[in-house]
Amino acid sequence: MSAGITEIARQLEAGAVIPYLGSGMLALCEGVTVPATPGALAAVMTAKVSVPHKIRARLTQAAQFIENFKHRKSVVMLMDEAYAAVPVPSQLHRTLATSGATLWVDSWYDDTLLAAVRAAHPQGGWRQIQGLSQSEHFGQWTADYDANDQVVDAPANATTRLLYRPIGGHSPASNYLVSDSDFVEVLTEIDIQTPIPEVVQERRKERRFLFLGCRFDDQLTRSFARQIMKRSSDTHWAVLPEEPTRMEARFLEEQGIAPIPMPLAEFGALLADALQPVLAR
């Protein structure tokens, strides 16, 4: 296993690996806590707005009910409250932010990785791209922000590091894909790649993905990962401490993702150690 992590470290520092982070990364963070699962987020939202019991635990349906019977602004307000605090980035967040990666994919709403990237690259040279809700930005799939949180219209150049947040995020503009209608709009077009920025499509070519804190036990997460990975390398990795479900195992095999069965914290420590001699070369 150590030889495998050494190879991941080598390719990561060479820019050949794309870290793909899920909400499970929050388990590594200390200090403030924010909702780290769809169920936890649904509980936070429905504790403040009355939602029918049968959909209270279903995040996208609960958000859709609030959007329909309150207002989209109510959904955004609840999301802002849930993710206003920023957890302290873990060692693994910091390792990834300071690595040679030129593209990170962050598939949850918190700003933890964003904070790590800001700290690692205070002089800029990076930007974030966030997915947009069609109910708020009809016809525009993404928004680009520079290191100073300003909207950027010009395409990123080849040396610009990219933080891609396909379902949006708290900072800087409260962009969230969270309701049924948000995801229906994206999933209707994602097979032909329309919602995925061209620069991401170009940057992923021949690259290998490293999935961290991700589970693939529901159709939504599998669909996003499958389409974001399209036309990349045919071999990837996923750190999965838990035994994968039957559907997860099938997805991993289909996509050429090799599971690494160890706790995230242990993997993070080993990766940081493996990167030291790579950086010293």
Rank of each mutant, 00 (worst) to 15 (best):
A173I: 08
T188C: 14
S171V: 04
H170Q: 08
R207N: 12
L212D: 05
S179T: 09
D191G: 15
R222T: 09
S179H: 02
D180I: 03
G169D: 10
D180T: 10
V178K: 01
V186Q: 15
Y176L: 02
F209V: 07
Y176R: 03
I167L: 06
L210E: 12
S171I: 07
E185P: 00
R208Q: 11
F211C: 12
S181I: 14
R222E: 13
K205C: 05
S174P: 00
E198W: 11
G213N: 02
V200I: 14
N175Y: 13
P172C: 08
R222F: 05
I196W: 10
N175E: 13
V178M: 04
D180P: 00
P172I: 09
E198R: 12
H170S: 03
G213L: 02
F216C: 02
S181H: 13
S179N: 06
F211I: 08
R215D: 13
D191Q: 14
G168V: 01
D217P: 03
G169I: 06
R222W: 05
F183R: 00
R222L: 04
D218I: 05
E206G: 12
P197L: 02
D182T: 07
F216N: 04
L220C: 03
F216W: 06
L177E: 11
I192G: 13
P195K: 02
G169A: 10
T194W: 08
A173Y: 07
C214Y: 05
G213Q: 01
S181K: 14
P166I: 00
G168H: 01
L177G: 03
E202L: 12
R204E: 14
G168T: 02
F183T: 05
I192F: 14
F209D: 11
D180R: 07
H170A: 04
V200M: 05
E189W: 07
L212P: 01
F209R: 01
Q201A: 08
L220D: 10
D217F: 02
I190W: 12
T194M: 10
G168P: 01
R203H: 06
R204L: 10
P197S: 02
Q193S: 12
H170Y: 07
F216V: 06
Q201W: 08
L177H: 04
I196R: 02
S171N: 07
D217A: 15
R207Q: 15
E198N: 13
E189H: 13
V178E: 05
G168N: 00
L177W: 08
V199D: 08
L220K: 00
Q201C: 09
P172K: 12
P197K: 01
R204D: 11
R203I: 06
R204I: 13
E185H: 14
E202S: 13
V186W: 15
L177M: 07
T194E: 15
F211G: 07
A173L: 00
V200E: 09
Q201S: 08
T194L: 14
L220P: 00
